[in-house]
Amino acid sequence: MKAVMSNKSAIALYVLPALLLILIIIYIPLVLTGYYGMMDWKGFAPMKFIGLDNYNKLIHDSMFWKSTYHSVLLGICSTFSLLIYLAVSMVLASRIKGANLFRKIYLIPMLLSSVAIAQLWSKIYDPSNGMLNHLLTSIGIQNPPLWLSDPNIVLFAIFVPIVWQYAGFYIIIYYAALKNVSEEVIEAATIDGATPWQVASRIKLPLISPVFKVTIILALVGSLKYFDLIFVMTGGGPNHASEVMASYMYGEAFSKYNFGYGSAVGFALLLICLLMTWLIRKLTTSGEDVQY
């Protein structure tokens, strides 16, 4: 048994193709991004080593920090919206008829491409023919906002379709976790006189807290990576009011052809994502996970 299942050449044959692929497509480029960040490399001219100049420029680049701020802001808002998804899931998981149908309906936007969502919501936000402002004027709101061209609310206007898109995703995660809480524990508590509120807050929530931690990471780090929707809807505009880290990097590299500086931004994006993941893990693993 042991000899067959530790056959070295078989292991190499099974693992190496995939391993080489992720090394070439993911890990080597990650290292190279950091390295290219040390190059003066514009357009199609050959690259020239300039040490840490790009990184120095990055630290003093207010545009970069503004886009980082926007990314973090979206991340924090996304994290808070998790509470709404959790509340909806708790309702769905408590003896609601048709819960299965509801969660499937909620999931539908998650299946669409961000491009389609961005195009659709651009039409919804359209100031003269869109659905939203027509609705607002018909209930008596004069001069509804110009959602995507007002720098003060464009970020909020982008956040709404993000919530719309991801709601179903988080709801199915929480729903599955809540359904995993053993019926016996809940029954025992109910017999001991626990109210539904106590069952929810003292038993169900602590038991699904590991899942909740994972979703915080997903929401925060996912927001830092956010790109498609914003790129298509506003391109980071108007006047960089909805610029995020990924769109800033993309613009520097593939519109301005500042490959060297773009690489430095890309490397910073990577570091911030890893730092954030590590930080949340650190903050949320205080104490043991609850088990009953």
Binding site: I22, Y36, M249, F259, G266, L269, L274
Partner: peptide, 21 residues
């Protein structure tokens, strides 16, 4: 671990080297 950490990697950080490659 190498495969699972891939979930957290922002693909935009790989774009310029990949494009070059």
């Amino acid at each position: 671990g190498l495969f699972i950490v891939g979930l957290m990697i922002p693909l935009h950080s790989t774009l310029i080297p990949l494009f070059n490659f």
